[in-house]
Structure formats: structure tokens, C-alpha cells
Write a protein that binds this DNA or RNA. Structure first.
Lengths: 338, 338
DNA sequence: CTGAAAGCGCTAACAT
DNA sequence: ATGTTAGCGCTTTCAG
């Protein structure tokens, strides 16, 4: 494997010039630039990242920490981040915390500290104080996606606004008995996302002058099965059966659609269903939903980091950066039956 | 951030001894080991990975290349690999080829060659000759998961045997008109996986003395929607309607279950359905399937690499390493109605 | 078992 | 615009 000296020799210049040329930093005449590039190409030269990192202090590598990887949201964020990083010539090192105990601790106490990273993106993590400490100890730019970390810039959708929009959509169709499938208590540990969505739902009802009924709330675990079970509880009642259901995630919403079918109810004729996410399966199930764009969130996180890494100081930016969302109309919602 | 010299000074030894102690290589007396570890712990010392890599030539980092990340199989393999790597103190650098053209080329022509990797795992990739070349050019151990790469050790399930097992299960329940939802032509590019599964299906039928009917094969694209549409085509016929369907993946099988429901057919009373994968949704849909264990495949790939990296030479091992699979009985298959 | 010292391959001052 | 050179922080002979 050719080294920088080979290239320098072949091009008839010094190693410093090769370095300057290939990194794009520092002044180089057009003529030498050509020579160097030709030589490098001919030899198939690629910089040794460890040597470069050691000398420069930059690794061209960023770490992405996720609580687990399977799951549409996480893998989409990672995909988006990966794409943006590739464009900038950065590698992505993945740290998956799933699996529990030991692994998790060693990620925070060893892996992240090896000076292998120029920055880190933390996706939807609920971190202990110690862990946040370690993250700061890395001494590198840090941005969160999908869940706030104490004092860290974070990209998220405005969960309250999203839930309000979903509920208002149902309201605008004439529904007044709107059930809500939200997060169970355990899930509320995660950034109060379920709670915020519930508040959005309740806010919309209040604004419409509708009483909030505890009976219309069912907790679940953000899975399809959980949504299915919650929806059955909601729909099996003889009286006060909701005419519409707002689920806090698409997977739960799809579970609700399947529950309705199993109970002999048609969607949307008998019951409307709306979710949040625009999950990959939403289209197949005809699910109306509020789309969020996790890939875009991953890309945006990278962009922020790149600016900070290259331009120097970070531009003034609130701690919480609001990401776009959008009502996606499909066939699971309709007006109240006359 | 403390360096190795700080530790050496505090422990009253040389940097060489610190290095030996912390890496576990080379002889160190129990007494100094203790001193060094105490000093390192006290200072919160963590080796600089670039310095260590540059000096040793080892990066403690392995690359995982996937065609895309969203998708149960891929993210599961990556999770498994990550877990195993973490245990061994290795980082995982992810290269996602999704997104096409440029990115893909630069991964093979630049990223993988930066000497940042000790080995690479290629997951289910259909590679061009040039790409395989580049992979070899990395000059590092290489193992494939889920799809053969010219001349590379690869972990896969025996697709033919898996398909045969699925078909035999249906046969053993008395079914003789068994439909098959397999891959469309475009999908066959990928390691002939669909073709192998189809051969397994046909082999089982032949062995049972049943004629193979082209009418009972429907191609699809390995998605739920594709499976749904293919199943409708299969089930909408008035005569010769299959009494059982074998889909080459769980997602397609779930699509088939939903198609059956929409046509007013009960599963398994009117039609049995079996898939391959044991996808995360299989349980919820009561899908009988042949389970494969992608996390285990990821872990196993890492184990092979670790052995090769540490023990030195690779043990004699066939190019194609067969991974386990297993019939998972649920409620989507049943005997023929009397 | 431990220490001294020579690099690993590149980058970044500093000169020119 | 280009060359010279001193490290970056560790690992690893080689001596002792």
C-alpha cells in the first residue's frame, strides 16, 4: 500500500505538498495539483486514517449512539446520518446500547473516549447523569435526535403540536368521541414523548370545547400488538365507543386498524384511525398519519455537526430544534357517518 | 485528557510497561499490574485509538457493509455483530450503500481503504467484480453474511433446505395444492436466493409425487404489499385455488394472510400460510414460519473474524457456512379441512 | 520482568 | 507556492 512519500517522490514534490493537495487545505498551484493527483491516482494512494488523525487531531469519524437498531425510526435516522456523512467524507461508527448492562456501560466508559470520534449523535436516548457526563467528557460536539438530553441541542418534532394536528384532523371530520392510544407509564421515561402527545390531544379537545374522558385513553407499548390490544379495549364497549382513534405511533395505529377489522368494524366507515410517523407500512394499510422524517433528522444532525466542525463556532441556535412534520391523508380517516 | 506518560509517571514505571499492562500483551508482574491499573483508573486514562493504531497496525475496528439498513434482516445482523464486537472491544463502522451511485462507489474506492478497518463483514450484497476487487484490496479478512460473494466465506441458511422444510410441513398437513410466492426476476440477482427457495419447494413437491404447476407460482418483491397482491392473484381463482401458500419471506406471508382475510377466507381453516424468517411481526400475526436467526449470523461472523485476527490462520472451513434454521409452529397452518 | 528508544505515516508550523 | 522538520501518542524491538 503506497504511502505519502511514494506519491511525493513520483510527483516530484514534498510530502507536505501532497498533504496540502489531497486535503484541499493550503495553497497549491494548479500545475502541482495535477501532478500530485495523477501520482496519487496512479499509485492508488489513500491516506492512512490513523496517521492522519494522530497528526491532525481530526478523525473524520463520528459516533452514533442508539438504544437499539431494529425499529423503523432508529434505522432511518442512522441511514440519513450515514448518507450525509458519506458525502462529507466521514465515517459513521455505530454504538448500539441494546442488550443491556455491561455493554452499555463500556460504551460510555471506554468506547466513546478513545478519541476516535470528532463528534457524537445520540438518538432517542434516555441517559443517566453519569452517561451524560461521559458524553460531555468526550469533549466533542454533541447533538441529540428524537429526545432531549440534559442541556444538549436536540432535533425533534414538536410532539404536542403533532398530536394537536392529528386530533384536529379528526375533529374537523366531525368526530367528538376520540380515543387515544398513548404510552404506558414505563414509556414515559423516554423524554415524556407519550405525555407530550397526550397533552397535544387533550389540548385540541379542550380548544374544541370537548370534555376529556379518561375512559378514552388506553396505554400501550408502542408496538402493533400493544396497539391492537388497546384498540380492542376501546372498541369493545357497547356504549360510548369512540368513532375515531388517535394512536401515538403508526405501529399502534396499524394494530388498531387490525383490531377494528377483527371486531367487524370498517375503517374508516365505523371508526377512523390516525397515527404518527409515516412508518414504512403506513401506506400499505392506508393509514392517515402525521409524517415525521427520521432520515431528514439524521441528515440535519450531521449538517449541524459539520458546520460546527468546519466553520468553527456554532451559530446561535436554540437547544431544541424543531423538525418538520406533515399531515398525510390516506384512507383510514373519514367524516362521521351521518 | 491523560496520556500514557501521565500514567507511567504516576505508577512509577515506563510507558512500555503501561502499554504492556493495559493491552494484556507481554509479561508484567502482578504488583506493577496493580499499580498501573490503579494509576490508569485514577486518571481516567483511555488509549488514543489513532496513536495505538498507527503504532500497532491494528485498529480494533471492523467495517460492516449493508445494502440498506431499514429492514429487519439487516438491522438484526448488524445488532448481532455489534454486540459481539463490543464484547471484544471492537468498534463497528457502518457503511450503508443505500442511496445509490456515488455513495456506493466512494465506499468501495475510498472509505474501505483508509486502513481504518481490521476486517470487513459484507451483508447480503450483490457486488460487481470491481467491488469484490476493492474488498480484497483492503487486504483484510472478509466474511459475508446472507449472500455469497465470489470466493468469500459466507454464512447463510441453506435456502433450498429451508424451503423444502416449509413445503414438507404443508405436505404433512395433507395439502397438495400449495401456492408459492417467490421472488420476481429482478430479485433473483441477489444470490439466487429466490430461485433456491423455489427449487426447494419444487423438490419437496416432486419427492411427494405432486406435479409442479406454474400456475401456483406468483412472483413478488419481498414486501408485505407484494405478498398481498400475489396472494390475491393466487386466491381469487375459482378453481384450483391453493389450500396452502408458502411465501419466501415472512413479510410476504403476512401480506398473504391479510389478502386471505380481505377475500373472506379464514387462515388456517380455508388456507394455510407459511413464511421464512421469523420476522418480528410473525408472532403477532400467528404466522408459522421457518426461523432464521440474523443476530446469531452477525455474531457468528464476528467470531470467525476474531479467531482469524487473534489466533492467526483461519481454521479450515468451507466457503459456505451453513447457519441454523427451525420450524416455528404458530396458528397460520393447519390440516386440510375434511 | 522492565526500560530506552526508534519509529508508525501523516500534518502543520515555520522557513524559504 | 513549496520544502523542512518536529512532533501526534502509542507499540515494540532490543537491551538489561
Amino acid at each position: 500500500m503506497a504511502g505519502i512519500e511514494d506519491v511525493a517522490r513520483l510527483a516530484g514534490v514534498s510530502t507536505a505538498t501532497v498533504s496540502r493537495t489531497l486535503s484541499g487545505k493550503g495553497p497549491v498551484s494548479a500545475a502541482t495539483q495535477l501532478k500530485v493527483e495523477a501520482a496519487a491516482g496512479q499509485l492508488g494512494y489513500v491516506v492512512s486514517s490513523s496517521a492522519s488523525s494522530l497528526a491532525s487531531g481530526r478523525t473524520k469519524n463520528i459516533g452514533v449512539v442508539v438504544p437499539f437498531l431494529a425499529g423503523w425510526f432508529f434505522s432511518s435516522v442512522v441511514e440519513g446520518a450515514q448518507r450525509a456523512l458519506l458525502r462529507s467524507g466521514y465515517d459513521l461508527t455505530l454504538y448500539n446500547l441494546a442488550g443491556g448492562g455491561d455493554e452499555r456501560a463500556s460504551v460510555f466508559d471506554n468506547f466513546l473516549l478513545r478519541q476516535r470520534l470528532d463528534a457524537v449523535i445520540a438518538v432517542s436516548l434516555e441517559l443517566t447523569e453519569h452517561e451524560v457526563d461521559r458524553l460531555y467528557a468526550v469533549g466533542k460536539p454533541l447533538v441529540g435526535v428524537g429526545g432531549p438530553i440534559g442541556g444538549v441541542r436536540t432535533l425533534t418534532i414538536d410532539d404536542r403540536a403533532v398530536a394537536r394536528l392529528a386530533t384536529e384532523h379528526l375533529l374537523s371530520l366531525g368526530h367528538t368521541r376520540i380515543g387515544h392510544i398513548g404510552g404506558s407509564k414505563e414509556f414515559d421515561l423516554d423524554f415524556h414523548l407519550p405525555t407530550n402527545r397526550r397533552f397535544g390531544y387533550e389540548g385540541a379537545l379542550e380548544a374544541a370545547g370537548i370534555d376529556i374522558s379518561v375512559d378514552l385513553f388506553e396505554p400501550a407499548d408502542f408496538t402493533m400488538r400493544g396497539g391492537y390490544q388497546a384498540a380492542r379495549r376501546l372498541l369493545e364497549r357497547d356504549q360510548f365507543r369512540p368513532t375515531a382513534i388517535f394512536a401515538a405511533s403508526d405501529e399502534m395505529a396499524i394494530g388498531a386498524i387490525l383490531a377494528a377489522r377483527d371486531l367487524g368494524l370498517s375503517v374508516p366507515q365505523d371508526v377512523s384511525v390516525i397515527g404518527i410517523d409515516d412508518h414504512e407500512l403506513a401506506d400499505f394499510f392506508g393509514l392517515t398519519t402525521i409524517a415525521q422524517f427520521p432520515q431528514g433528522q439524521g441528515e440535519k444532525a450531521v449538517e449541524i455537526l459539520m458546520e460546527e466542525l468546519h466553520a468553527g463556532a456554532l451559530e446561535p441556535m436554540g437547544l431544541n430544534i424543531s423538525m418538520p412534520f406533515e399531515l398525510k391523508l390516506r384512507s383510514s380517516t373519514a367524516g362521521l357517518r351521518p
